[in-house]
């Protein structure tokens, strides 16, 4: 019986092929197999949101998805949020609002917040807090994160 399985999927708009063990999570595959270490591990059991990625249009904790389940899917990680050398307005807003301290939660927050703004371009404070309640940040008290998302929403609106 082979110990690894061949998986093909699209990650950040590129077709990727890799071998993984059936017991490896998508998070492990991203970090250890594909070298995409921007996605972080905080708990490995679905409770911190640091490992958040977009998978087929939904945000998922990649620690709770098996690598083999990503077969044929479309995945966006933090590495795919900026367009080339240009930061996404959320990334700019996080920097300008000082919305990160240690920064370990930041990739998860940015991926999750992007999913929110993609579907709800004008969220109010409560909607932002509710959407981001799966993402833990221990450093900031969330205040500046919420403001960064509001600022990014405004920037995106202006650009329209």
């Amino acid at each position: 019986m082979p110990t690894t399985v061949r998986v093909e999927c699209t990650i950040n708009d590129e077709t990727r092929e890799f071998l993984c063990e059936p017991r490896q999570s998508l998070l492990e595959c991203l970090r250890d197999v594909l070298g995409l270490t921007g996605t972080k591990e905080g708990c490995n059991d679905g409770n911190c949101g640091s490992c958040t990625v977009m998978m087929d249009g939904r945000i998922v904790p990649s620690c709770l998805v098996l690598g083999v389940e990503s077969q044929g899917s479309e995945i966006t990680t933090i590495e795919g949020v900026a367009r080339g050398s240009e930061l996404h307005p959320l990334q700019t807003a996080f920097l300008e609002s000082a919305a990160l301290q240690c920064g370990i939660c930041t990739p998860g927050f940015i991926v999750a917040a992007k999913a929110l703004l993609d579907r709800n371009p004008r969220p109010d404070e409560h909607e932002i807090r509710l959407w981001l309640a799966n993402n833990l940040c221990r450093c900031t008290g969330y205040d500046k994160i919420i403001r960064a998302v509001q600022q990014a929403a405004a920037t995106l609106q202006e650009a329209k």
Partner: peptide
């Protein structure tokens, strides 16, 4: 003043190397 932090771009793009990221 409130300049953007020097390590900021790396930390919002996933490029910063944290403890577990070393290979």
């Amino acid at each position: 003043t409130r300049p953007v932090r020097h390590d900021g771009a790396d930390k919002v793009t996933g490029r910063a190397i944290y403890g577990a990221d070393i290979h």
